[in-house]
Computed example of a mutant assay.
Amino acid sequence: MRIAELTALLHLASPALPIGAFSYSQGLEAAIEAQLVTDADSARQWIARGLDDVLARGELPFLAHQLERWRNHDVDALHAENAAFIASRESMELRRETEQMGWSLRQLCVSLEWGDASRRVTLSALQPIAQPTAFAFAAFVHDASPDATLAAYAFSWVENQAAAALKAVPLGQFAGQRIVVALRDAIEGAVTRALATSPDDLNTFAPQLGILSARHESQYSRLFRS
């Protein structure tokens, strides 16, 4: 991997990236409220299932295909698949999450003038824009490879989930780091599966997540927006 590619992906995967990832738990807080997650082991299992059942089957392959569409500048497909991904979100909170983070990442890309002018026009025209679509644009303009792009995205997701568990379970710092380390191989497996998934085989079916996310909308006490 080139140094420029590595540093670009480290930037995009950083929790310091100003897109608001820290404010979302993607259903984890609702799982804690339902006592499905009560300690470090159950938190690790929950995050591992999300990586395997949600990201690897849906979000990561979608990201890979959007990356290729940005490479080809297939405007019609970018619009159609971006809209389909947003429509697939299981709850109002999860839809708002991807839209808000996608909007924030797009603002960053535009303000830093990443990419060529014609693709920035396409990026700005995507209203609303899903986070993976914006992430794919940012990865493309830095000439990042698909496997590295997906690995960075998946690691960022796992790290954010572990950070949410630290606050909401709560867990200690070492417990959170153990979760991240334990899922390194799972991230590699998720990326491998995602890269082998065709557009027609994307699957976002996650009924438990959808139910918990919908419950979170009216949960009495909340630290997170999803």
Rank of each mutant, 00 (worst) to 15 (best):
R2H: 11
E5V: 12
H11S: 09
A16M: 15
S23Q: 13
S25V: 05
Q26V: 05
G27N: 03
G27C: 03
E33G: 02
Q35F: 04
L36Y: 01
V37W: 03
T38P: 05
T38A: 09
T38M: 02
Q45S: 09
G50V: 00
D52I: 10
E59F: 09
P61R: 10
F62E: 03
L63M: 10
L63Q: 00
L63S: 06
A64V: 03
H65I: 09
H65L: 14
E68W: 01
W70F: 11
R71Y: 01
R71V: 00
N72R: 12
H73M: 11
V75S: 07
D76T: 12
D76F: 09
L78I: 14
L78K: 10
H79E: 06
E81L: 08
A84M: 08
I86C: 08
I86A: 09
I86P: 01
A87M: 04
A87E: 15
S88R: 15
M92W: 14
L94K: 10
E97F: 15
E97G: 03
Q100F: 05
Q100N: 11
G102E: 02
R106V: 00
S111T: 10
D116G: 08
S118A: 15
R119P: 00
V121C: 04
T122G: 07
S124Y: 02
S124C: 11
I129P: 02
I129K: 01
F135Y: 15
F137P: 06
A138H: 00
A138G: 06
H142I: 07
D143L: 07
S145T: 12
L150A: 02
A151W: 06
V158F: 09
A164Y: 09
K167D: 07
A168S: 14
P170L: 15
Q173K: 13
Q173L: 12
Q173R: 14
F174P: 03
A175G: 08
G176F: 14
Q177S: 12
Q177D: 12
Q177F: 14
R178I: 12
V180S: 05
V181D: 11
V181N: 10
L183T: 03
L183H: 01
I187S: 02
E188Y: 07
A190L: 09
V191N: 04
R193E: 04
A196L: 13
A196T: 11
P199G: 07
D201N: 14
A206N: 08
L209W: 08
L209C: 07
G210I: 02
S213E: 13
S213K: 06
S221Y: 06
L223C: 05
R225S: 11
S226H: 08
S226M: 01
